[in-house]
Design a protein around this nucleic acid. Sequence first.
DNA 1: ATCTTTGCAAACTTTTTGCACCAAT
DNA 2: ATTGGTGCAAAAAGTTTGCAAAGAT
Lengths: 143, 143
Amino acid sequence: VADEAAILERLRSAGGRVTGARRAVVAALLAADDHVTADDLAATVQAADPEIHLSTVYRTLDALERLGVVDHVHLGHGRAVYHLADDPHQHLVCEECGVVIEAPHDLFAEVAERVQATYRFRLRPHHFAVLGRCEDCVRRAAE
Amino acid sequence: VADEAAILERLRSAGGRVTGARRAVVAALLAADDHVTADDLAATVQAADPEIHLSTVYRTLDALERLGVVDHVHLGHGRAVYHLADDPHQHLVCEECGVVIEAPHDLFAEVAERVQATYRFRLRPHHFAVLGRCEDCVRRAAE
DNA sequence: ATCTTTGCAAACTTTTTGCACCAAT
DNA sequence: ATTGGTGCAAAAAGTTTGCAAAGAT
């Protein structure tokens, strides 16, 4: 799904309209590395067209999310980041410095099974980042 | 630490003052079962004294947290819950219906070790709840 | 022509903060 | 007398929404 034309077509065939704003958001999303906030995307699209409003970015992301094209993950207090849905992965976020480490999506497969068996609860750890401390911050705190 | 007088004494010996508002918040905290929001606590204390302001509840919880008496956990979008620090545990929260399941604090010990070895990242999963779906909601979705 | 999307401003939710007044030690 | 706490109202931060105008099909 990592192709602008295909994504736009998908919007269209779901009864949606393909507008300049949506084109710009999709392009920005494909160009960006992972972990972009709605604000980041707005800044990118506004560099070309300052008329495009932040709320339009949110609404476009919302539409793309309903189509299964993107996912969003909450990294901690407040800020959420968006990424293409075709590459599921985990996010480890340092509570101290905010650095984001990507890990394979099956990192929690083992615990997930255990939790399923014990608590009859299906873990879906990808929608919220897993918090902790990176090595640097652990070391800094130890001094 | 699960004793009102002891907690108040701890506030005092840290140079703090013991006020009516603080007494009320501590009492409400001890009386409540787990998973109370600041709002819940405010409602409880305001039943006795409507003058006590929500911001005072927040500031009191903040003071207690700095003393290590309480912890707060983010259950999902926005809402945080407070509980006494002497009983650390994990929270499994259903994204669908919001139900909260408590699990032992060492539930993630195994993954934590693996993550530490592989990513040099120290997991601290207790400050944010782990999200997923409870059995009922999984079943309901499957229909 | 129709139905969707847009810009804007305003609402929203939860928590924090500046300030002048008040109270515990 | 100090220092710290309080009520209030207002500010945050991030996201959503109501509306009338503009646009895609």
